[in-house]
């Protein structure tokens, strides 16, 4: 999940209005930006959509890292297109957040100074080309798991952004699987690299869905508001069930000795990730937290003269046109 640990905000609104609002949601109506909404709904959504947008943007960094070193021109063009999509997804989501009354600059600054988070997964490095395949396959695969149900979320602009994103996202996962399949079916060294990428990225991918349901105390309100559609463990289980056969096809081994099919449940039993690592990464102590934020801050600072220059030019042009009229 691209939004983790989103705490639902308490709401102190008129109980009558709250009940009418909940009835609209229960009836499957979409809430639009100008409609009345509880303050808690608005604030929780800003945090959730914002974190999701930040994840798309920061998520460009680990993959952008390999654009210039892609093994072929075709892989390079594909990766470039994929990373460009991520920028687009970030922009759709920022626009959705902005309809809730936060400005683009405000929300950007909250990422840059650490007040807002992005998904823990992007604090892991992409050490070699196999990681790029694994990221598309596993990380985008996990993201899709979460985003498909969010197309039905109650907030109109968020739902529409998700529909657009889901249309484009399946390309991301498939190009990743295709890239890692090439390696898994390649030389023994290449296959070893593919296995190594799966070993390192398996548990961080499982962490994307957020803490276990028994420790996820903020879900109930968000689920009632339909801004969270499934519990963390539901989605994680779905991801494991979908991914294990895909790994088997590649001849790769999921790094979990206790993983086994449970006939009775109709699901795989699997080992939970090490949650202390997850909370540590969220706190800022992952392998790449410092690098990621530094890269975003540098881009923002280095781009300032461009943003200011283009705006000054636009204002000058408008003033000239005005004077001529």
């Amino acid at each position: 999940m691209y939004a983790q640990m989103i705490k639902s905000e308490a709401t102190q609104d008129d109980p009558e209005k709250l009940a009418a609002f909940q009835a609209r949601i229960d009836a499957g109506e979409k809430i639009e930006p100008k409609d009345w909404m509880p303050e808690g709904y608005r604030k929780t959504l800003i945090r959730q959509i914002g974190q999701h947008a930040h994840s798309e943007i920061v998520g460009q960094l680990p993959e952008g890292n390999w654009i210039t070193r892609a093994p072929t021109l075709e892989r390079k063009a594909i990766l470039l297109a994929k990373v460009q999509d991520e920028a687009g997804h970030g922009l759709y989501l920022y626009c959705a957040a902005e309809t809730l009354g936060v400005s683009r600059d405000e929300i950007t600054e909250m990422l840059l100074d650490g007040r807002m988070k992005y998904s823990s997964i992007f604090n892991y490095p992409t050490l070699n080309w196999a990681d790029i395949g694994a990221v598309g396959w596993l990380v985008d695969g996990a993201a899709i798991m979460n985003q498909v149900p969010l197309q039905r979320t109650s907030f109109g602009p968020y739902s529409r952004a998700m529909i657009r994103i889901c249309k484009e996202e399946s390309f991301h996962q498939r190009q990743g699987y295709d890239a890692i399949r090439k390696m898994a079916e390649g030389t023994p060294e290449q296959k070893k690299m593919a296995q190594d990428a799966l070993n390192r990225l398996w548990y961080p991918s499982l962490m994307m869905f957020g803490p276990s349901d028994k420790d996820s105390v903020h879900s109930a309100q968000s689920m009632a508001w339909k801004i969270k559609m499934n519990t963390n463990d539901e989605l994680r289980q779905k991801f494991v069930d979908q991914t294990v056969p895909q790994a088997e096809y590649l001849g790769l081994t999921v790094p979990d000795p206790d993983l086994k099919w449970n006939e009775e449940r109709g699901h795989y039993d699997y080992t939970d990730p090490d949650w202390s690592e997850f909370f540590d990464v969220i706190k800022g102590n992952g392998p790449c937290n410092v690098d990621r934020l530094a890269a975003r801050n540098k881009a923002w600072d280095d781009g300032k003269w461009v943003r200011d220059g283009l705006l000054a030019h636009a204002r000058k042009k408008a003033a000239r046109k005005h004077a001529a009229e």
Partner: peptide, 11 residues
Amino acid sequence: VGSLHAPDAEM
């Protein structure tokens, strides 16, 4: 289809 930020119409 959505919105975006830009300094002027051309951009």
